[in-house]
Amino acid sequence: MCTMIATQIKIAGTGKAGNGWFELREANVSYDHPFEAPFDHALNIDFVNESLGPGARVAVELDVASARRLVETITAVLAKADQGGLLGE
């Protein structure tokens, strides 16, 4: 909450935390202080299911370069799958 740069999106999928897999409904993307990563600020993604309470959370905290590579990679992988007619959206 130091930067207040945070956005929530609705998602569908599953995530795995300490207690096993659970349904994911939201992803919270922020650029703010991380809890664990050794940076002042990080690109944080919390994959959550708010209906299950605060503990239903799969968290990642990335440095900026890693976050950018991740975005590019997701886009490239989806494009490749699309070219192969595999997306089925």
Binding site: N44, P54, G55
Partner: peptide, 15 residues
């Protein structure tokens, strides 16, 4: 915001 370990609760508030 609810209860759990502090960072999970804080992450919910951050969102």
């Amino acid at each position: 915001a609810g209860h759990g370990i502090p960072e999970d609760v804080a992450a919910m508030v951050r969102a």
